[in-house]
Design a protein around this nucleic acid. Sequence first.
DNA 1: ATGAAAGCGCTAACAA
DNA 2: TTGTTAGCGCTTTCAT
Lengths: 337, 337
Amino acid sequence: MAQTVDDIAAHMGLSVTTIRLVLLGKARQYRISRATESRVREYIDEHGYQINHSARSLRLKRTDTLALIIPRLSNHYFAYLAELLERRCRQAGLQLMVACCDDSEENQQALIDNFQQRNVDGVFMVPANAKLAATAARYFDNRLVLLDRDFGMSEYPVVVSDNERAGYELGSKLLEFCFATQRAPSILLLAGNPYMPSIDARTQGIKRAVKEAGLGRKNLQIQTAPRNGFSDGKSAVQDFLRTGHDLPSVLVTSSIPVFEGALDALRAEGRGYSCDQVLATFDDNTMLDFLPNPVCSMRQDCPQMIDLAFAEMQGLMTDHATIRRHVSTLTLVARNM
Amino acid sequence: MAQTVDDIAAHMGLSVTTIRLVLLGKARQYRISRATESRVREYIDEHGYQINHSARSLRLKRTDTLALIIPRLSNHYFAYLAELLERRCRQAGLQLMVACCDDSEENQQALIDNFQQRNVDGVFMVPANAKLAATAARYFDNRLVLLDRDFGMSEYPVVVSDNERAGYELGSKLLEFCFATQRAPSILLLAGNPYMPSIDARTQGIKRAVKEAGLGRKNLQIQTAPRNGFSDGKSAVQDFLRTGHDLPSVLVTSSIPVFEGALDALRAEGRGYSCDQVLATFDDNTMLDFLPNPVCSMRQDCPQMIDLAFAEMQGLMTDHATIRRHVSTLTLVARNM
DNA sequence: ATGAAAGCGCTAACAA
DNA sequence: TTGTTAGCGCTTTCAT
């Protein structure tokens, strides 16, 4: 263990106050004599001093620590959010603790308990459901910012993407492409966990695009899956093919992991899959640029989302700012089309 | 703030010891009367109790917290390591703090200072250089496990992949494929930051494969870049093409971000790039399955690496275990070849 | 079978 | 211009 302020004071025959004022750089400003100040500075330069954060936290009832609860880091979207938020926190002198709940409600509750015990100053979270968000708000005295999923609770600040509009734009673009290239305007949407507001909004957006194009329900087939992972995409495709359906012109997935699982299954099953198959997904990935197919993706503006979320948190930690709902715009990225 | 043990004791007219013994489940085992125990249990069930971790840490000089320092989370390899380690720590009742140093030595030093002040019990890190590893070992009383990069310091436990052998296997496979498909046996290696031991080992492995195949230096061209990011891959390709070289049959990259940058540039520049271009990279990505080219990758065994690393840390935190160097084996994954 | 008290290292209020 | 002290909530040791 490093030296404490008491140690230094004792060794130098001074009081803790004197040492502390020098340490805080308040020496000149307040009252310490030049001589004393430089003596202390020298001693510290030589022997070093590292503050004990546990003690400071106990005293101040503040840990300068924030938490981020996400489903998983192996999903690039969440990893990128985590990277951006970690950097932002660090720049502000705060420590970020990242934890994954694997989309399990029990895990998320356990994490909330844990972060409460560890006295984190505030929490960013991708809520598993509305109830957990409410619990977290109570535990953390409303220093809570919700990310990615909007359960419609106006009591807490939330930062989401405009998923309905994204679905609409994506759907419109895809149908337009079908008409332009003499493809049948038929879409298969693989939706992981339709109970999540973000996934549902995306679905609704696509439905609206189909409807406004004057098309009907046979032009849009929807295959749902319990979650948003690789295996969900895979089994969704398998389930779809098993029913004897032909593959529609366009395949849309609700997230990158679902996209990967779906393509994996498609390539294995074969059945009419080729480079002509139009692919589309929500979220983005550089590798999509390199596929031979026509590929379309809706990219979320992660830097903006994190900026907004962090600003909200800063508001909550200082003045009790107004609670706001931020909706960030997605960008359509089209390749080979 | 939640209730403290003192609060509960005061409210119930008991002493803190009594409350604590019940809380710890040592009531029966020790001496508390059944009546008292159930009274206390009821009270706690009703009013709840969350331990104050700051106070506990101060007293015990132990935070039950570990740190992980990696270059960045937007690289899937590191994100996956982080996810696995976070889960492993959580299962052991420990908190993991993940921080990104962006491959900057100053950032890494700052993070080491920060984690020292926060009294973390141990640190996992991808060292930027040998000196920083030594510093960290001093700061954290040797509770340090190095990951991914082996600077040859036998004093500290380290978990790495067998990069030389991976390079050799990858090189051999690629040359073999060239012969089998009547391609000229020529390789271009794009190596991000050749000063990193892992990258250097990969390079040496490929060199050995070329040599053992009876080929010479004109069969292996190496273009280096300062780091291992997207822009490095991009500029490496641009630099290579600018010198008027033709693109060799095989393009190998030292990491996925370099791969992405390289392909991005290739597709833009055009010059002889097609689906016939053989591609290869270290590290793995599901999307590689979907490229039309012959693609080869060397996949690291992240779960095993994290198991080994965590076991080492547990050793360091209990008995002072022997310092070990773990070398994990990579798996070759070939597509369309 | 239960209680009291010291002390971890820091901060802030109050003395001198 | 500098010093003293209480107390944050917990754990541990020693008394009753």
